[in-house]
């Protein structure tokens, strides 16, 4: 997603990552992958539960988030979502750009 960052900027789109890791661990990931968007920490799975994404016993006995991508519109409504069937396979940035581009041209 970082590779298409400028396209997302043009589309007035922000990106955040969310996982159960503590902020310090997320800081390392941001530095390692050179991300310009934030990674948020949800150690109690509060937000993960609010989205219904808890994966019980998902990783070495711990509860984690199942991988999922949501696009929220300007009012915070769910415009689009992807729940992959295989956690190694993620949605392509181009797909997200297409969805937001289509929504933008409609409004």
């Amino acid at each position: 997603m970082q590779s298409r960052y400028h396209d997302f900027q043009t589309l007035k789109t922000d990106i955040v990552g969310i996982c159960v890791d503590p902020p310090e661990a997320n800081a390392k990931v941001v530095a390692k992958l050179d991300l310009t968007y934030p990674i948020l920490s949800d150690p109690d799975l509060k937000v993960i539960d609010a989205f219904g994404l808890r994966h019980e016993n998902g990783l070495m006995g711990k509860d984690i988030a199942r991988p999922a991508v949501f696009i929220l519109d300007k009012e915070g409504r769910v415009l689009w979502k992807d729940l992959t069937a295989n956690y190694r396979v993620r949605v392509k940035p181009g797909t997200l750009i297409d969805v937001i581009g289509a929504a933008t041209s409609k409004s």
């Binding site: 997603m1 990552g17 934030p38 948020l40 984690i64 300007k74």
Partner: peptide, 28 residues
């Protein structure tokens, strides 16, 4: 939620813009 840099990020910070929320497994 607390971001990697220690700041607090809220949903309302993104009103008026599209937002991509990417949930992932973590523990890298």
């Amino acid at each position: 939620l607390t971001a990697h840099d220690g700041s607090t990020v809220r949903l309302e910070d993104f009103r008026g813009r599209y937002l991509i929320l990417s949930f992932y497994r973590g523990h890298w």
